[in-house]
C-alpha cells in the first residue's frame, strides 16, 4: 500500500468513526433490522430444537431400514447393520454402534437444514438436547413395541451420546472450515 492509498484509507476510517455513534435510529424499521440480525446470529434454541426433533423423527425412522434398533424392523429388511455389528463383536458392541449411528445420522443430516449459527446454538445446549432426544427415542422404541432390557439400554444410551457429541462437534468443525 502506497502513502496515497494509506491516506485515503485513513480518511475513510475517520469518516466511518465520525458517523453517528450515539446509536442507530430508533424507528420501527431499524428495530426490525436489529431483530432480524439478532435472530439470525442468536437463533431461539427452542426453535432449533424443534427443527432437530423433526429431522430426528424422519431420519431416525428411515435409519431403521439400515440398522434395526432393539429388533425393530419396520421396513422388513433381510439384513441390517445391526446383524453385522452383532457378528463382528457381540451384542454389547452392537448396541453401542447402533446408538452411535442412530444419533449421528440425525446431526449429520441436519447440516442440510441448519445454519452455522443454529448449529452453534445446538452445541450450546448439547447435553440437554442429546439427553432429551435419546430418552425420547427410547420412548418411541418402547411405543413401537421394542423390548428394552436394562444393561443393553445403557450401552445404547452410551453409544447415542457418543454419536451425538462426535457428530455435533464434527459438523461444527467442518462447517467452520468451509464457511471461512
Amino acid at each position: 500500500m502506497n502513502s496515497k492509498e494509506r491516506e485515503a484509507l485513513m480518511k475513510e476510517f475517520a469518516e466511518f468513526s465520525q458517523s453517528p455513534s450515539a446509536g442507530i435510529e430508533s424507528s420501527i424499521a431499524h428495530s426490525h433490522l436489529f431483530e432480524g440480525i439478532k435472530g439470525r446470529l442468536f437463533p431461539n434454541p427452542w426453535k432449533v430444537f424443534g427443527k432437530i426433533a423433526l429431522i430426528h423423527g424422519v431420519v431416525g425412522f428411515l435409519s431403521l431400514g439400515i440398522c434395526n434398533q432393539f429388533g425393530l424392523n419396520p421396513f422388513n429388511v433381510s439384513y441390517s447393520l445391526a446383524d453385522f455389528f452383532m457378528k463382528t463383536a457381540g451384542h454389547s458392541f452392537c448396541m453401542v454402534a447402533c446408538g452411535v449411528l442412530f444419533l449421528a445420522t440425525t446431526y449429520f443430516f441436519s447440516n442440510l437444514f441448519l445454519t452455522l449459527e443454529e448449529l452453534e446454538s445446538v452445541r450450546r445446549y448439547e447435553w440437554l438436547q442429546l439427553g432429551t432426544l435419546t430418552l425420547a427415542s427410547l420412548g418411541g422404541f418402547y411405543f413401537l413395541g421394542a423390548e428394552l432390557v436394562g444393561v443393553f439400554v445403557g450401552f445404547w444410551l452410551l453409544g447415542a451420546l457418543i454419536g451425538g457429541v462426535i457428530s455435533i462437534e464434527g459438523s461444527l468443525f467442518l462447517r467452520k472450515i468451509f464457511s471461512a
Binding site: E15, F16, S17, S19, P20, S21, A22, G23, I24, E25, H30, F34, I37, K38, L41, F42, R124
Partner: peptide, 21 residues
C-alpha cells in the same frame, strides 16, 4: 464467549456508523 447482551451494546455503538458508511 457467546454473550448476546454484549452483542446488543456493540450493535448500539457501531450499528449507526456501519449503516451510515
Amino acid at each position: 464467549s457467546g454473550s448476546d447482551r454484549a452483542f446488543d451494546i456493540i450493535y448500539q455503538r457501531y450499528g449507526g456508523r456501519i449503516l451510515g458508511y
